[in-house]
Simulated assay, not measured.
Amino acid sequence: MSWFQKTITLPSKSRGSYLITDNIVKELPEIKQYRVGVLHLFVQHTSCALSMNENWDSDVRSDMSDTLDRLVPEDKKGDLYRHSAEGSDDMPAHVKSALIGSSVSIPISDGKLATGTWQGIWYLEFRTAKHSRKIVATINGEKTG
C-alpha cells in the first residue's frame, strides 16, 4: 500500500456550485500510478463544501445553490442567527457546509477515478465574496507495476 498527499488551491469563487473534477484530475497526475485505491478530498474551510453530483447539466448546480439558499436563508435583518461575525452570509454558510459536508472519497480503478457516468466532484461556495479554498487530497492504494 502506498500513500500520497498534496494540498490543492482552488481558484477564487463567489457563492455557487462548481464542477471541479477536471481541476482535481489535472492537479493530481499521481492518480494514474494507482491500480486500485481511494482518493479522499477534504476542504479546509467551514463555509464551503464538497459533494459528488450531476456532472452534465449545469442547471443542477444552479438549482442546488438556489435550493440551499431557500433552505438556509441569508440573515439580512439580523434576527435569524446569533453568529454574524463576518456578515449576513456567515452563519448560513456554516449551516450549509454542515449539511453538505467537507469531504468526498472516490475509488480509483486502473489509474482513473471510478465515478459513475453522470457523477462529478463539486465545490460549493456559500459566501458571497470570492474566497480562495484549499483542499487536502490523499491517495491510498496499490500502485501499478
Score class of each variant (00 low, 15 high):
S14I: 08
Q5R: 01
E74Y: 08
T7C: 08
M91A: 10
S12E: 12
T46N: 02
K134S: 11
G78N: 09
I8V: 11
H94A: 09
K13E: 14
N53I: 02
I20N: 06
R61T: 11
V43T: 10
H131L: 11
H83G: 07
D79G: 00
I139T: 00
Y18I: 12
A93K: 00
S14F: 09
Y34F: 15
Q5P: 01
I139H: 04
D90S: 11
D66R: 15
S105H: 03
L99T: 06
R35S: 12
S17T: 15
I31S: 03
D63H: 13
S2K: 15
Y18F: 15
T21Q: 06
L68D: 05
L19K: 07
D75C: 04
S12C: 07
H40C: 07
S58L: 14
S14V: 08
A137H: 05
L28S: 04
H131K: 13
W122L: 15
R133F: 08
G37Y: 05
K130T: 12
V25S: 07
I108V: 00
G87I: 04
G16M: 11
G78P: 03
H94W: 10
S14T: 13
T9H: 10
V95K: 04
G101C: 09
D63V: 01
S51A: 15
T46H: 00
Q119D: 04
P73V: 02
I108K: 02
E142K: 14
I108Q: 05
E86C: 10
L99D: 09
S12D: 10
E125M: 08
G145A: 10
S103R: 03
K6T: 04
L68S: 06
M1A: 12
N140W: 05
I31V: 13
P92M: 07
T117M: 10
S51M: 14
S47D: 09
N140C: 12
L10D: 05
T46Q: 07
I8M: 05
I108Y: 01
S58T: 14
I31E: 06
D22M: 03
V60L: 08
P92Q: 08
I8H: 03
E54C: 06
M64L: 15
G16S: 07
R61G: 10
S103K: 04
S58H: 12
N140H: 13
D90L: 00
